Lab assay of single mutants.
Amino acid sequence: DRIFMTRTEALEFLLKAHQTAVDKIGHPSHKQTPADHAAIEALDRLLLDVRARRVDQFQINASAAQIIVTD
């Protein structure tokens, strides 16, 4: 599946995904793992790359739809 978004929409989408990941590892019942921190770092890099126009398409994980940034 493909989803087309403007750059602004894609950045909002990534910010929400980032916040969800941060909230998940901050929850008291969740045991933090290196994979959790790696996922947040990957989202940080992706946010910067989309914002800087170095990336025009991405996929958060293998089961997610491919996001295509349109400007």
Rank of each mutant, 00 (worst) to 15 (best):
Q66H: 06
T70R: 13
E9S: 05
M5E: 00
D1Q: 10
K31T: 12
A42V: 13
A21M: 15
T8A: 13
L15Q: 12
A10I: 01
A21H: 11
F4N: 05
I40Y: 04
A21Y: 13
I3W: 10
S63R: 07
V22F: 07
A52D: 14
A35L: 09
F4L: 07
S63W: 09
L46R: 00
I68W: 12
L11M: 11
A35D: 12
T20H: 13
T6R: 04
A39V: 13
R54Y: 06
S29Q: 11
D1W: 04
D56C: 06
R45N: 11
T8K: 14
I68F: 12
E41A: 12
V50I: 07
F58A: 00
G26L: 10
K31N: 15
F13L: 11
H37A: 11
A42N: 12
Q19N: 09
R53K: 15
I25L: 07
P34H: 09
V50F: 03
L46N: 00
Q19V: 07
R54F: 06
A65N: 07
A38F: 09
N61A: 04
V55G: 01
I60L: 13
L14R: 00
F4W: 08
G26Y: 15
I3E: 03
A21Q: 07
I68Y: 09
A52I: 06
E12L: 11
E41Y: 10
Q57W: 14
P28R: 03
D36T: 03
H37L: 15
L46W: 02
A52N: 14
H37S: 10
Q66M: 15
D36W: 05
A65V: 14
I3Q: 07
D23F: 03
K31W: 09
I67L: 02
I40M: 09
L47I: 15
F4R: 06
R2Q: 13
A39T: 11
A42K: 14
A17K: 06
N61Y: 11
T6L: 04
A62P: 15
T33K: 03
L14I: 13
S29R: 02
L43W: 02
V22I: 05
D71C: 05
A21L: 15
D44M: 14
A35F: 08
Q59P: 02
K24P: 02
V22Y: 08
D36K: 03
A62E: 10
L46F: 03
A42F: 15
A35V: 06
F4V: 09
N61H: 13
F58D: 00
I3H: 05
D49T: 02
F13V: 04
R51A: 12
R51K: 13
I68L: 07
Q57S: 13
F13H: 09
A62K: 10
E41K: 13
A10G: 01
D1T: 07
R51H: 12
S29T: 10
V50P: 00
R45F: 05
E41F: 06
V55M: 04
L48I: 13
L46P: 00
D49W: 04
A21G: 02
A65R: 06
L43D: 00
T33P: 07
V22R: 04
A10F: 01
A42W: 14
R51N: 09
R45M: 08
T70V: 15
Q57Y: 12
K31C: 05
D23R: 10
L47H: 03
H30A: 02
G26W: 15
A21S: 03
R7S: 04
L47Q: 03
D1K: 10
D71P: 09
F4K: 05
T8P: 13
S63C: 11
D71Q: 09
P34G: 03
V55S: 03
H30G: 06
T70P: 02
F58K: 00
Q57H: 13
F4G: 02
I3M: 09
I60V: 09
E12N: 11
E9A: 08
H30W: 03
N61L: 08
A39F: 15
Q19G: 04
I68H: 05
D49H: 04
L15I: 13
Q59C: 05
L11W: 04
V50M: 04
A62W: 07
Q57C: 06
L11I: 14
T6N: 08
L47Y: 13
N61G: 14
K31D: 13
D49C: 06
R45L: 10
F13T: 03
D56I: 10
H18C: 06
L15F: 08
F13I: 06
I60K: 01
A35E: 14
H18Y: 13
T70C: 07
A65D: 07
A62S: 09
G26R: 14
I67F: 03
G26I: 09
R51E: 12
E12K: 12
D36Q: 06
E12V: 10
M5V: 03
I25V: 10
R51W: 12
Q66G: 02
D1C: 10
A65E: 11
R2N: 12
H27S: 14
H37K: 15
L47K: 02
V22L: 12
A17Q: 07
I3A: 04
L14Y: 00
E9F: 03
V69Y: 02
A65G: 07
K31E: 15
I3C: 05
H30D: 08
T70S: 11
E41N: 11
M5I: 03
A62I: 10
D23H: 10
A64P: 08
L11Q: 03
R54I: 11
L46Y: 02
R51T: 11
A65C: 08
D71V: 10
H30I: 06
R45P: 00
F13S: 02
A64L: 11
R2D: 06
A38H: 08
D71G: 09
S63F: 14
P28N: 10
A38M: 13
E12Y: 10
R7N: 05
L46M: 07
I67S: 00
F58Q: 00
R53W: 11
A64V: 11
I3T: 05
A42P: 01
A52E: 15
R45I: 08
I40V: 10
L11T: 05
L47S: 03
Q59H: 08
D71E: 03
P34R: 04
E9G: 07
P34I: 10
Q59R: 13
F4C: 07
A64Y: 10
A52T: 11
M5T: 01
V69R: 01
T70E: 09
G26C: 12
A39M: 15
R7E: 02
D44F: 14
Q32R: 05
F4Y: 14
D23Y: 03
A21K: 03
F4S: 07
L47C: 03
F58P: 01
H37I: 15
R54S: 05
F13K: 02
R51L: 07
I3K: 07
E9T: 03
Q32S: 12
V50A: 01
T6A: 03
K31P: 14
R7G: 02
A21F: 09
I3F: 05
D44L: 13
L14M: 01
T20D: 09
D71H: 08
D71A: 09
R45D: 04
I67G: 00
Q57E: 11
S29A: 04
D36I: 08
T6F: 02
A38Y: 11
Q66S: 10
N61Q: 10
A38S: 08
A64I: 09
H18W: 11
H37Q: 14
V69K: 01
Q66N: 04
N61K: 02
G26S: 15
T33Y: 08
I68Q: 07
I25S: 06
H18T: 05
E12A: 12
A65M: 13
Q66I: 15
I68S: 06
F4H: 06
D1S: 06
R2F: 05
L43P: 00
K24A: 04
E9I: 03
A38E: 13
H27M: 12
I68P: 00
F58G: 00
A21P: 01
